[in-house]
Every structure is written in structure tokens, then in C-alpha cells.
């Protein structure tokens, strides 16, 4: 995923052109747009609605129904933590506390320097190897506060 600027109009048009041919193309289109831009730019919703021959309300309704889709840009890095039971049984609370404290944000928020966005996830299917944390899409298992700290530091180095 790239957090690119929403400039090249042609690209969005291409995405809409190819997905609006499908009867069920709206959700795949949102995925493609978010993959390209990092979020779904709100100001482009009229265009998206037109391409799918839907009302803006319909498009907005679909968009906001799904946890994956975002109307705001995210930080340079996205840290997702599993909140579900199997990870809880293995001590995810300590990992979550550590992340919240260290980053100074709650779920759904981005750090003031726009470096990291913290998101909750309800299960990565890594239940046998929890607690689970994903950083920019790469999943890490058997996390602890210390291991998460190491990963955060590694991110700082790459940023």
C-alpha cells in the first residue's frame, strides 16, 4: 500500500472503468483505490457514484459499512493489533497497552508526527501463535511488549 497523493486523475478513472463493468465491482474498486491512495478520497465519491450508476448515499453507505475502508489518510506505518479472544488468552492486553502508551494514540488514531496509525483487527487467523501484530501488512506472531518495542524501533530506523 502506498500513501500517494491524489493527483493523477487518470488512474482513478482507470480503476473505475475496469471495476464498474462488474455487477459487484464497488467493493473491489474501493480496495483498488485504497491500495493506490492509502484511503478513499471523499471528494472523489461523486465520480465513483457516477461510474457505478449509484447515488452518493449508496456509495457512502457501502464504504462506511466495512472496517477496511478509510476516508482519511493513514500514517506512514500502519500497526494493526488483534483484539480477539485467542490473542487475549495469550496476553495481548499487555501488547495493546504498550502500543497505546508508546505511540500515545488510541485505536483508529494516528500519531501527531503522522508516522504511525494504530488499528484494531478482529483476528488474523494466527490464533495458534498469538498475540498477533501486523506492521504495514507483515504479520508477527507470539508478540510481547518487548518484541513489539523492538519492531517499533526497527520502524523508526527505516523511517
Amino acid at each position: 500500500m502506498e500513501n500517494g497523493k491524489v493527483e493523477s486523475k487518470g488512474e482513478l478513472e482507470d480503476i473505475l472503468e475496469s471495476f464498474s463493468r462488474l455487477a459487484n465491482g464497488l467493493i473491489p474498486a474501493f480496495h483498488a483505490i485504497q491500495n493506490r491512495y492509502g484511503y478513499i478520497p471523499k471528494e472523489r465519491l461523486p465520480e465513483i457514484a457516477r461510474a457505478f450508476n449509484l447515488s452518493q448515499a449508496d456509495v457512502y453507505g457501502v464504504l462506511t459499512f466495512y472496517h477496511d475502508f478509510r476516508l482519511e489518510p493513514v500514517g506512514r506505518h500502519v500497526v494493526s493489533v488483534c483484539r480477539a479472544e485467542a490473542c487475549q488468552a495469550n496476553g495481548s492486553a499487555a501488547v495493546i497497552d504498550h502500543l497505546r502508551r508508546k505511540l500515545g494514540v488510541d485505536f483508529g488514531e494516528t500519531t501527531a508526527d503522522e508516522e504511525v496509525t494504530l488499528l484494531p483487527t478482529y483476528c488474523f487467523g494466527n490464533c495458534a501463535c498469538g498475540p498477533s501484530v501486523a506492521v504495514d501488512g507483515k504479520l508477527y506472531g507470539r508478540m510481547s511488549a518487548e518484541r513489539v518495542e523492538r519492531i517499533l524501533r526497527g520502524m523508526g530506523a527505516s523511517a
Partner: peptide
């Protein structure tokens, strides 16, 4: 859509 926590057989 294997969303249940504690399941991973579909995956």
C-alpha cells in the same frame, strides 16, 4: 470469511 477468533482451518 473465517472471522471467528480461534479458527484458522479455512485459511
Amino acid at each position: 470469511d473465517e472471522g471467528d477468533s480461534g479458527t484458522f482451518s479455512d485459511r
